[in-house]
């Protein structure tokens, strides 16, 4: 170890001084060695599937595989745009995701502002601890809990509804439009607390002098929320909103799929579940379903890139 380093002075200079690219690459060779395994992983498991996207332009057969199947151009995309379900699943996807985006933007902020206002620190701590808990429950368990509790006969929903109205309620899982609300509000229950962390942190790092000055000027707490707290978290809020807006077309497959049943299909069929069904359901067609998925990914990519540009302009903060 020491023998290698016969000229420490030169080394020290080299670290800070500029030199040829190859020399710097050579110097960093061990760093590349460390990176090798992650890069190989990334290429195989992330970039090779991107090459697999070519089957969206082919007629995939198991015999031909990805590379040997026949090119058919934009056939599958055209088929999707003229699919009778096209409009419906697009509207469903946008409805559920925009609703989710809006609700899950305002509620964590409101929660953070309320918690920050609270003078009772013990209660604040307790509410924080409690509201983070559901975040760690799996989607399957969440849907399972909803199934049990919202059961119109044996669930707590049925019991409460019967004591109030005197009759058994409708099964919420059988009402198509209820799917959207179930999806969004279970998301609020699960993630509102956790999403509020960012805002609570921004608020606690805010300038206390402003609060004191406002207090001396006789501002009430509510006025200080309006004129001190809200401006404090505004930059964070804008970034969160923009970043989430980039995900508008991505509605997670798992949760929708688990909430879905034959009765609520008219509202719950979104792009990702449709892709799955076209690939693994009856009349399996890998190429067609890849084309749908790819259409979705590309719109997403465009959305993210554009919101990133906007975010760069508006807030000097961006993903890249």
């Amino acid at each position: 170890m020491k023998s290698k380093n016969n000229n420490p002075k030169k080394n020290a200079v080299a670290v800070s001084g500029g030199q040829g690219l190859w020399k710097r690459v050579y110097r960093a060779r061990q760093l590349y060695l460390l990176l090798a395994l992650p890069l190989i992983y990334l290429i195989i498991f992330k970039y090779v599937p991107m090459l697999g996207l070519q089957i969206a332009f082919k007629d995939y057969t198991f015999k031909g595989g990805i590379w040997g199947s026949e090119w058919v151009g934009l056939k599958h995309f055209k088929k999707f745009f003229s699919d009778t379900n096209f409009k419906r699943i697009l509207v469903n996807t946008l409805r559920v995701s925009i609703y989710h985006l809006v609700v899950n933007f305002f509620i964590p902020i409101t929660l953070a502002l309320c918690l920050n206002c609270l003078r009772n620190q013990k209660l604040k701590k307790a509410v924080q601890t409690i509201t983070y808990v559901p975040h760690f429950i799996s989607v399957v368990v969440l849907i399972g809990m909803m199934n049990q509790m919202l059961n119109p006969i044996i669930g707590i929903y049925g019991t409460i509804s019967q004591t109030i109205t005197g009759s058994r309620p409708m099964d919420l899982f059988g009402i198509p439009v209820a799917f959207v609300h179930l999806y969004v509000w279970s998301g609020v229950w699960q993630n509102a607390g956790f999403s509020s962390i960012v805002y609570i942190a921004a608020l606690s790092a805010s300038d206390q002098d402003l609060h004191e000055a406002a207090q001396i000027d006789g501002a009430t707490r509510l006025q200080r929320v309006r004129y001190v707290d809200i401006p404090t978290i505004l930059p964070t809020a804008i970034i969160m909103l923009i970043l989430n807006a980039g995900k508008v077309m991505t509605v997670g497959f798992e949760k929708v799929f688990l909430l879905q049943n034959n009765l609520n299909l008219s509202y719950s069929e979104v792009i990702s579940t449709y892709v799955y069904k076209k690939a693994f359901g009856t009349g399996s067609n890998f190429s067609y379903s890849t084309a749908i998925d790819m259409f979705n990914s590309i719109i997403n990519l465009i959305l993210i890139c554009s919101v990133n540009q906007i975010s760069k302009k508006v807030s000097d903060s961006s993903l890249w």
Binding site: I44, P49, M50, V275, F286
Partner: peptide, 24 residues
Amino acid sequence: IMMIFTFTMIFSGGMIPGYLLIKD
């Protein structure tokens, strides 16, 4: 190199190519 990593956050092959890869 960082771009190579972060790009996979915003774009992916999706469900079917992923499945075919695991199968292959």
